[in-house]
Amino acid sequence: MSPGRLTVGTVLSVSTLIDAHLAQASGLHKRFGDIHAVNDVSLHIDPGETYGLLGPNGAGKTTTISILAGLLEADGGTVEVAGAQIRPGSTRGREAIGLVPQDLAIYPDLTADENLKFFASLYGMPKNDAKTRIDEVLDVIGLSDRRKDRVSTYSGGMKRRLNIGIGLLHSPRLLILDEPTVGVDPQSRNAILESVETLSEEGMAVLYTTHYMEEAERLCDRIGIIDSGTVIAEGTAAELTSSIGEQERMRIEISGSVDEAAHRMESAEGISDVAVEDRAIVLLTDDGSRRLPDVIRRLSDTDIQIGSIDISRPDLEAVFLHLTGKALRE
Rank of each mutant, 00 (worst) to 15 (best):
T132P: 05
R133P: 01
R133D: 12
I134H: 06
I134L: 07
D135C: 14
D139M: 11
D139C: 08
V140G: 02
I141T: 12
D145M: 09
R146H: 09
R147E: 14
K148S: 13
K148M: 11
D149R: 09
R150W: 00
R150C: 09
V151C: 11
V151W: 13
S152L: 12
S152D: 08
T153S: 15
T153D: 05
Y154G: 01
S155E: 10
G156A: 08
G157I: 03
R160K: 11
R160M: 06
R160V: 09
R160G: 13
R161S: 04
L162A: 01
N163A: 11
I164R: 05
I166V: 15
G167M: 04
L169G: 08
L169Y: 10
H170Q: 06
H170L: 06
S171H: 10
P172R: 12
P172K: 06
L174P: 14
L174M: 05
L175P: 12
I176A: 11
I176L: 09
L177N: 12
L177G: 06
L177H: 09
D178G: 09
D178L: 07
D178F: 02
E179C: 02
P180M: 02
D185E: 01
D185A: 01
Q187F: 01
Q187K: 05
S188E: 11
S188Q: 03
S188L: 01
S188Y: 01
A191Q: 00
A191I: 03
A191D: 01
I192D: 00
I192C: 02
E194L: 08
V196M: 06
V196I: 15
V196L: 07
E197S: 11
E197C: 02
T198D: 07
L199K: 03
E201Q: 13
E202D: 12
G203F: 07
M204N: 08
M204F: 03
